[in-house]
């Protein structure tokens, strides 16, 4: 039992990653749009778990707040606003689905072919392994502190530009979605 728990703890990232893949597959394959949103929610929650597993605590919590808390609810609202008839007359998938799947499969094969040595080769295994000791001041500062130093000191200008972009997007969304009666 303890052994099993230890194994689960060691492979937590793999478990969360497989959950994310499963959620993404549900999202793409589901016929009902609400089921798609639920698959999206599962994928986002599992991604938050992945972030936590690779030592980005702040990003994990931000993922939970932004995606699971905000974006999924927004999607659900729009699905319920828009999706009146569940049964579409022309089917869920595009006509050219086989071609697209073949193309995506070819992309996967090509990527794996090119990066075969990087991903599976023994020579690259050590160089790419995440080394926990590499984070120099991170261990004693903590993830959120370190991130805030980066964000508010080194990358202050992009951060401010991002806030302006968010404001523009807010105004744009209101303008786009309002009715034209006024």
């Amino acid at each position: 039992m303890e052994n099993l728990l230890l194994k689960i703890g060691q492979n937590l990232f793999l478990i969360f990653g497989l959950m994310a893949l499963g959620g993404a597959a549900i999202m793409v394959a589901a016929k009902n749009a609400v089921h798609s949103v639920m698959g999206f929610l599962l994928a986002m929650l599992a991604m938050a778990g992945c972030y936590l597993c690779i030592g980005a605590e702040f990003m994990g919590v931000a993922q939970l707040l932004v995606y699971a808390g905000g974006i999924v609810v927004l999607f659900l609202f729009v699905v319920m606003l828009v999706e009146l008839s569940k049964a579409k007359e022309k089917g869920v998938f595009q006509r050219q689905t086989p071609f697209a799947l073949v193309l995506a499969g070819a992309g996967v094969v090509g990527f794996v072919g090119v990066f075969w040595k990087t991903i599976f080769g023994t020579s690259a295994q050590e160089a790419l392994t995440l080394a926990p000791g590499l984070v120099n001041q991170g261990e004693k500062l903590g993830n959120a502190q370190m991130l805030s130093r980066g964000l508010f000191a080194e990358y202050l200008l992009p951060f401010e530009i991002l806030s302006v972009i968010l404001l523009v997007a807010l105004v744009g969304a209101v303008v786009l979605a309002k009715t034209e009666r006024v």
Binding site: A24, V28, A33, S36, A43, F93, Q94, Q96, T97, A104
Partner: peptide, 16 residues
Amino acid sequence: LFSIGVAGVLIRRNVL
């Protein structure tokens, strides 16, 4: 995950 996203964009009809 990225390739599942690409496949979804290519094969679905629903904008959402």
